[in-house]
Design a binder for these strands. Structure first.
Length: 512
RNA sequence: GGCCCGUUCGUCUAGGGGUUAGGACGCCUCCCUUUCACGGAGGAAACAGGGGUUCAAUUCCCCUACGGGCUACCA
């Protein structure tokens, strides 16, 4: 066990595009685990694949984590730290991987392979034609390939000196039981006969994920590797690497997280799902330089707390029935033991519900500050005191602040049309009498608040000889144009009696 | 195909050898309410199938089915 050591975990994405919500969840669980144990959370960029590198992806990852409040205390974009650099391409430049690959060769755990892509392709075709179960470069097939195990020492030397292209492959033993202890799944056993001689060092001079990952985790003193389930099949390879490098004592513990599945059908959630499903799969908007972008939760109007809360519960569950969690509560309660084993499709409806919940529990002042930029942009203004009251009323009707402007349009301007159904049903002789009465009462009101507005309304009703219920909705339509909305007299108070009078007059002018 | 992982309401999940199998979202009904929403009270809704083990299995074991992942000089 490594329990006596300070917990250190890392999130190690590849900058091959925007980080999708599954990646954010992996980062979140790493963060929660680290904080729960008073440990460190590190961000490392695994950019060993030059071909898939996407400009802007790295900045996107950093900004996403910041928006979510998942702040690494060490790593790229977060002040670096004692193990700088945190970008694998830069670590490679410093020669941090090469030596380990050479050492593995020297120790007999790896070898040089000179096969061309065509030769590899040919081998696979042959094996497939022969109906071999796994057409791979392994303990059997390597005997027929061009590598330092089959070539003479002289030829290998000549080829290396001549500068022939080569890779370094791990020499997987022929038949050995490899055991991986996964904190979520328990022991996983794999026979090495099923494994292939994975490339550790590429011909372009870059280490592959497997080598770089193990070397960095060791050097950065990582104690727990928490990553997606797609890595479970290569965990035995990593175990072997720790062993061959002589680091078995320091090997981190593994925890493979269940995958986030596509809500609509089959397969794991992928970056390509973009906006296709009708909701975002990314934390924030992705706007590549030319290419096609995709929308994010931030721009869709989600609060980071809601997004995080929703994500935390997608694959992890506390022992009780609590569903609403602050980050601090998540940190306090999180444990890998309570992470589920099976993949999760997520439900956009529930995400919305979380947002609605957080919206309702936010102070009006904070909501207003979030709404204001849109109001200013659209040239809509009212005194803050009124806006604050409007926020209070609209909060109960909306799931997102983005709905406010439309939902409360009548606070800013007189209705341009009236709900026809209500008028047809309620605009009769009695109503006309009521309208004349309330117009006068509102016009001469000395002070005006919700209670006054309601009292005057009721007086008008009784004087016109009708029940309030008969004209209540009509009156709402007169003031707002709409058949539904927040408490009517609260609305009237915010509008003020002058505006109410104007709107009654406007209505009468159009509906004589 | 091979290897690995998984399978409780539509979805996220709790639970665990004997339970009325619990909660949440969504859906439906009722109450509150001028309306809509909120809130409150209810309701419909699940242990993939087959074999074992056991007095007893949804829970443990095996098989099958289904789902997922991996199978690159990608991560």
């Amino acid at each position: 066990m490594t329990s006596d050591k300070k917990v250190r975990v890392r999130f190690a994405p590849s900058p091959t595009g925007p980080l999708h919500m599954g990646g954010v969840r992996t980062a979140l669980y790493n963060y929660l685990f680290a904080k729960h144990h008073g440990g460190d959370f590190i961000l490392r960029i695994e950019d060993t694949d030059r071909e898939r590198f996407v400009p802007g992806a790295e900045a996107y990852i950093i900004e996403s984590l910041k928006w979510c409040g998942i702040e690494p205390n060490e790593g790229l974009g977060f002040g670096d730290g004692p193990h700088t650099p945190y970008r694998q391409s830069e670590r490679k430049e410093k020669g941090l991987y090469r030596g380990y690959a050479e050492k593995l060769v020297a120790d007999g755990f790896a070898y040089y392979a000179f096969d061309t892509r065509e030769e590899l392709e040919e081998m696979r075709k042959k094996l497939e034609a022969a109906k071999v179960a796994s057409a791979s470069y392994n303990s059997v097939t390597r005997q027929n390939m061009k590598n330092s195990l089959t070539l003479s020492e002289d030829e290998v030397k000549t080829r290396l000196e001549r500068g022939d292209a080569y890779v370094i492959r791990i020499k997987i033993p022929r038949n050995e039981e490899i055991r991986v202890n996964d904190l979520i799944r328990g022991w996983v056993l794999v026979n090495s006969a099923q494994m292939d001689d994975k490339v550790l060092y590429k011909s372009d001079g870059m280490p592959t994920y497997h080598l770089a990952n193990v070397v960095d985790d060791y050097n950065m003193k990582i104690t727990h590797v928490i990553r997606g389930e797609e890595w479970l099949p290569s965990a035995p390879l990593h175990v072997l690497l720790y062993r061959y490098l002589g680091w078995e004592e320091a090997m981190p513990q593994f925890a493979h997280l269940p995958l986030l599945l596509r809500p609509d059908g089959n397969g794991k959630l992928s970056k390509r799902d973009g906006d296709r499903l009708g909701f975002p799969v990314f934390p924030i908007d992705w706007k590549p330089e030319g290419g096609e972008g995709a929308s994010g939760y931030r721009e869709a109007g989600y609060f980071p707390e809601a997004f995080i809360n929703m994500l935390a519960l997608l694959g992890w569950h506390p022992s009780g029935n609590q569903e609403i969690f602050t980050m601090a509560e998540l940190i306090e309660q999180f444990s890998l033991e309570r992470v589920s084993k099976s993949g999760a499709k997520f439900d956009p409806e529930k995400a919305k519900w979380f947002n609605q919940h957080y919206l309702r529990h936010k102070p009006a002042q904070e909501i207003l500050s979030l709404w204001k930029p849109e109001l200013e942009q659209k040239g809509l203004s009212l005194p803050d005191a009124s806006l604050l009251k409007i926020c209070g009323l609209l909060t109960e009707k909306a799931s997102f602040i983005g709905e406010f402007t439309e939902l409360g349009s009548y606070f800013f301007k007189a209705p341009e049309g009236y709900d026809e159904g209500v008028i047809k049903k309620r605009w009769n002789e009695n109503a006309k009498e009521f309208a004349a009465l309330i117009l006068e009462k509102y016009r001469s009101a000395k002070s005006f608040d919700a209670a006054t507005a309601e009292n005057l309304f009721k007086e008008s009703c009784s004087e016109a000889g009708i029940k309030p219920g008969e004209v209540m909705q009509l009156f709402r339509v007169v003031l707002t144009g709409l058949p539904g909305g927040p408490a009517l007299f609260e609305v009237a108070e915010i509008l003020g009696n002058d505006v109410c009078v104007e709107r009654i007059e406007l209505f009468l002018s159009k509906n004589a």
